[in-house]
């Protein structure tokens, strides 16, 4: 019943289309790319995009200072970005929401403990915390995922805990306990369906955040390994050359911008369509 309603939301459709575009280019990167993303062509460095004067049609978006094809690097960078976005956001969502449900459902000392942990965790600046983690963990896409999960689970925990607290007070949760449901059954059958819309929304927003964090970490050289194409690395490479070839900076930046906008639009659209309270307020 919710699928057609979702498709009627402009934000969901627009955001979804953007993400789909990025996902398809990531998926078919080997087919679409004309070059290997790490192939250097030192005769053709800092070429402008093909439609500009001096551009070469075999390098549609031009080349960087080592003569690597920007377009191919962009496509392969999308793979890293999406992989990190999906796994890191899901990981943070699982860790954060499990703790949130435990805290909100059982309350008391457990709630106190998890609440204080979240507060202490959140008082670290997130960028510093992830940098420290990356220094400790070493580089690589999987390390980036671990770092994002460890930093951002608190977002989920905080917001979802409140939602759980509201749901737990509903009489149907008490009724489920009286029907002999175990704690696990009550949580998964009665409470999780109520918190799921919020969880999905947060998840979508978190994916946008993960794309940025991955880019930031790659930019400072603590993200994926140097031989892998990533958007953050493309920006880092462009630092020295963007005066001569602005496209080297603009191309990866636009990719990040479009992807994050897509996730944000999708998240906002999901929030508006899935949140029962907003829907009720509008129809009243």
């Amino acid at each position: 019943m919710t699928a057609p309603r979702l498709l009627r939301s402009g934000r969901v459709v627009a955001g979804g289309a953007l993400i789909l575009l990025v996902a398809l280019s990531a998926l078919f990167a080997p087919l679409l790319a004309g070059h290997d993303p790490s192939d250097q062509d030192l005769l053709n460095i800092l070429l402008p995009p093909a439609w500009q004067h001096g551009g070469d049609p075999t390098f549609p978006l031009g080349t960087d200072s080592l003569g690597r094809d920007e377009f191919s690097r962009l496509l392969f960078g999308a793979r890293v970005a999406l992989l990190v976005a999906l796994t890191a956001a899901s990981g943070a969502a699982v860790l954060g929401s499990v703790l949130a449900h435990i805290a909100g459902y059982f309350g008391g000392f457990v709630d106190w403990l998890i609440g204080r942990a979240v507060e202490v965790w959140m008082s670290f600046p997130p960028v510093i915390l992830s940098l420290i983690l990356m220094v400790g963990l070493g580089t690589g896409a999987d390390r980036v995922v671990v770092a994002i999960v460890l930093v951002d689970w608190t977002r989920f925990c905080r917001v979802l805990r409140v939602e759980v607290l509201v749901t737990v007070r509903r009489d149907y949760v008490a009724a489920a306990r009286l029907a002999g449901f175990s704690h696990l059954q009550t949580l998964t059958r009665e409470i999780l369906p109520a918190t799921l819309p919020l969880l999905i929304t947060l998840l979508s927003l978190e994916m946008g955040i993960a794309v940025i964090v991955e880019a930031v970490l790659s930019f400072v050289g603590l993200g994926v390994s140097a031989d892998q194409a990533a958007w953050g690395q493309m920006i880092a490479d462009a630092r020295t050359s963007f005066a001569q070839a602005p496209s080297t900076l603009l191309v990866p930046m636009s990719a990040i911008f479009l992807t994050v906008t897509g996730f944000n639009l999708l998240g906002d659209g999901l929030r508006r369509t899935l949140d029962v309270r907003l829907g009720a307020a509008r129809s009243a």
Partner: peptide
């Protein structure tokens, strides 16, 4: 408040048999 808005009536009334 006592009936979970996301479950069907048939599931709600036989909740007890679903437990465990």
């Amino acid at each position: 408040s006592a009936l979970n808005p996301r479950r069907r009536v048939g599931d709600i009334v036989t909740q007890v048999l679903q437990a465990g």
